[in-house]
Nucleic acid binder design. Structure first.
Lengths: 110, 110
DNA sequence: TTTTTATAACACCTTTTGGTTTCGTGTTTA
DNA sequence: TAAACACGAAACCAAAAGGTGTTATAAAAA
C-alpha cells in the first residue's frame, strides 16, 4: 500500500553522490533546474536526468511556474530507508553488547 | 578518519536488492558462500561478486574456516547512512509541523 | 592418493548508468 | 513580433554493473 510500483526505488536513487547533493540543496529551498545545475560541473540535461530519477523515487516533486520548473524536496520516502536501517540496529546493538560482555569477562583470551 | 578510501561506499552497496537480502540473511548468522547462494536464483560466482562489493563497503567480513569462507555481517558502516538520514529528518519533521499548522489554521483553503 | 568440496580468479557478454550534444517547444521580455 | 530564456526529448556514447561459464587451487574425505 505504500509502494506504488515506482520505476526507481529510494535505495537506488540515493546511491549516486550527485543525487544526494541535489537532495541536500533542495532541503534548503525549492529550486529550478538552472539554479541546481550551477552547483555542479554537469550539464543541465544531466541534472535533469538525475531529477527524473529522484522524482521516480518520490523524493522530489516538480511544479511549473511560468517558464521554469521548480523542484521541491519530498523526504517522506526516506522512511523506507529508516525502517530498513532499524532492522539492523537491533543486531548492531546486540553485537556491541556481546563485545562488551566479552571484554569484561575475558581480559586476555591468549 | 572514518572513511578509509573504500572502492564501494555503503550507499552503493545497499542499492542492489540482492545485496540487501544477503545482509538480512547474514544478520541471522554467519554463512559460507554456498549456503548464501542457495537462497537466490543466481550462480555462486554472482553471489561471490556481491559479497566482494559488500566487503569493500565494510559491511561484511570474511574468515576462512578450513575449505570454506564464512561471511559475517558488519553493521557498523550503516552508521553513515543513519547520519545522512538524520540530516533530512529535521526537514521532515519541520514539514510535518507546517502541514499540521496549516490544517489546524485553515480548515478549508477554497 | 584420489576424489570431492568450497571457493577464487578469469574471460566474456549484455544491460544499465551517467554523461554528452542537438533540436524542439513554450514563456517571457525587449 | 522577435529575441532570449528554461526546459524536455531524442540520439548517441563510454564505462560500469550484473550476470554467465570455465578453470585453478586448496582442504577434506574416501
Amino acid at each position: 500500500m505504500s509502494a506504488p510500483a515506482l520505476k526507481h526505488d529510494v535505495f537506488q536513487a540515493i546511491a549516486d553522490p550527485t543525487r544526494r547533493s541535489v537532495l541536500q540543496l533542495l532541503a534548503q529551498h525549492d529550486m529550478p533546474i538552472v539554479a541546481i545545475s550551477e552547483n555542479f560541473p554537469l550539464s543541465r540535461t544531466a541534472i535533469n536526468k538525475h531529477l527524473h530519477i529522484l522524482s521516480d523515487a518520490g523524493l522530489v516533486s516538480s511544479r511549473r511556474v511560468g517558464r521554469e520548473t521548480r523542484y521541491r524536496l519530498q523526504p517522506e520516502p526516506l522512511a523506507e530507508l529508516k525502517d530498513w536501517l532499524a532492522f539492523f540496529e537491533t543486531y548492531w546493538h546486540d553485537r556491541l553488547s556481546l563485545l562488551k560482555d566479552f571484554v569484561e569477562k575475558e581480559p586476555d583470551p591468549q
